[in-house]
Design a protein around this nucleic acid. Structure first.
Length: 430
RNA sequence: GCAGAGAUGGCGGAGUGGUCGAACGCGCACGACUCGAAAUCGUGUUACGGGCAACUGUACGGGGGUUCGAAUCCCUCUCUCUGCGCCA
């Protein structure tokens, strides 16, 4: 949600931004907001006046009662009752206008960064820098499920029986590698000065509706039956929810947090081969990073954050690149966003392993997350950013494909060996 | 899960139907005193919205209700504390 003040002062700028995002259908929302805002304020002024009258009349009645002038008090009560009927009418009308205004405001996309490349959809995203040149394999790299099976690392058949499609048992060295990657990533972020946090894995509906739209919620979130609780789709939900409706002292910024959680997603809709296996599943684990900072610092943190992910993957010897999200592919809440993509030697292309976003104050405004600006003495909205540190098992696909050797073994880079009992490779069974 | 008590400003804590946005204390800011400081004294100090402004509205955990009028009464939800029960 953007600042309504910006629409009042510079509606053309907001419209330009909508055009940049190829959402011309939403242009009319700007004028609609201006109109609704006007009538809301008119209603509020009228309502305020009536309420002021009510307060005055109530005081008068109080005074008369004390003086035991009961008949006069009764007369004024009648006037006040009539007055209150009008107040109720206006309040109802005002609530309706406000709801409509909020709905329109929620649909107007965040102002995007000047750095965001213009483009209609994901086909026009722009490749950024490439890190670690991908080496050509001298052999055909198999589908990741085949690699997993060759090292006895997965049991999908049992998972389908116990839990259905989209679940998995990871076993042996693969399960250990999964944990090793998370633990290594956790320590990596702690070394960067981030504070480790384990958040709740379930959140209430008011938090859910705060952090996402109804459509997202319907397509993603699992609900706990008979309780006002949902399983989180990412720890960002509970991590950002943690700050809902709070005002932080300036000295508490920036908040640099790295969180671990399992993530649960319905993933409604059918997906192709490249989204099967352990690429898109109902349950996975993720190390995440979030930052809450002062507005003037969010560009700095954005750069820092996605570079951390790059550094992490490079340290595990996995080739990655940055992919700049173009204007049309950018979610409405985002100011700027990029994916970190890992190289797939099998598909001979990059695929998404993480996503970094600067939401500026759009999310904070929606959730009421502020800080006290010491200079101005005012409470202002913080900027929020989030980024994937690493999300196995998806990350394991890149790991297995890149580290598979001609003899069928899987190479373990030195940084992970301490978490793997010193092993330098995973050897295939039989 | 059951029973009881409670939730008020940055903090502690009064207030049980009207003059309460809220006593008092602490903290904080500014000023006086001082060479400077402590102590002391004085002044100020909730947030959000509307209005050019004067001014005005709303909010005492959340939501709903009663009333001319609610921090105060009723219902409901959430949370905290105490005791009991249960359980990794």
């Amino acid at each position: 949600m953007i600042d309504i003040e910006l629409i009042r002062k510079n509606p053309e700028f907001v419209k330009e931004n909508i055009k940049k995002k190829f959402q011309d259908g939403k242009l009319c929302l700007v004028d609609k907001v201006l109109e609704l805002d006007k009538s809301k304020r008119a209603l509020q002024t009228e309502g305020d006046g009536l309420r002021a009258q009510r307060n005055e009349l109530a005081k008068k009645i109080g005074a008369l009662m004390r003086e035991k002038k009961l008949k006069e008090a009764e007369e004024i009560k009648e006037i006040s009752k009539k007055n209150n009927e009008r107040v109720a009418e206006i309040e109802k009308e005002c609530a309706e206008v406000e709801a409509e205004l909020k709905k329109a405001m929620m649909s107007i996309p965040n102002i995007i960064s000047e750095r965001v490349p213009l483009g209609k959809d994901d086909s026009q995203n722009v490749e950024g820098k490439v890190y670690l040149k991908a080496e050509q394999k001298t052999f055909e790299v198999p589908y990741h499920l085949d690699i997993l099976e060759s090292v006895d690392g997965i049991d999908l058949d049992s998972a389908r029986r116990t839990s259905g499609n989209g679940f998995y048992y990871l076993t042996g060295d693969i399960a250990r590698l999964h944990s090793a990657v998370l633990t290594y990533a956790r320590d990596f972020m702690i070394d960067k000065g981030f504070t480790f946090c384990i958040p709740p894995y379930m959140i209430r509906s008011d938090v859910v509706s705060g952090v996402m739209s109804f459509e997202e919620m319907d397509g993603m979130m699992y609900k706990i039956e008979g309780e006002d609780l949902y399983l989180i789709g990412t720890s960002e939900h509970s991590m950002i929810g943690r700050f809902m409706g709070t005002t932080l002292p300036e000295s508490k910024l920036p908040q640099t947090l790295t969180s671990y959680s399992p993530c649960f997603r319905k993933e409604k809709g059918a997906h192709g081969l490249e989204e099967r296996g352990i690429y898109r599943i109902h349950q996975f684990e993720k190390q995440e990073m979030i930052v809450l900072c002062k507005p003037e610092e969010s560009d700095y943190w954005y750069e820092k954050m996605w570079n951390y992910t790059v550094e992490l993957f490079v340290s595990m010897e996995i080739p990655v690149r940055q992919l700049l999200c173009c204007s049309g592919d950018l979610a409405d809440l985002k100011y700027e966003s990029c994916d970190i993509e890992a190289w797939s030697p099998r598909q001979k292309k990059y695929f998404e392993v993480g996503s970094c976003s600067n939401l500026t104050d759009a999310q904070a405004r929606r959730l009421g997350i502020k800080y006290k600006n010491e200079k101005t003495g005012r409470n202002e909205f913080v900027h929020t950013l989030n980024n994937t540190v690493v999300a196995p098992p998806r990350m394991l696909i890149a790991f297995l494909e890149n580290h598979l050797q001609a003899d069928g073994s899987v190479y373990i880079p030195p940084v992970l060996r301490p978490y793997m009992g010193g092993k330098d490779k995973i050897i295939p069974k039989k």
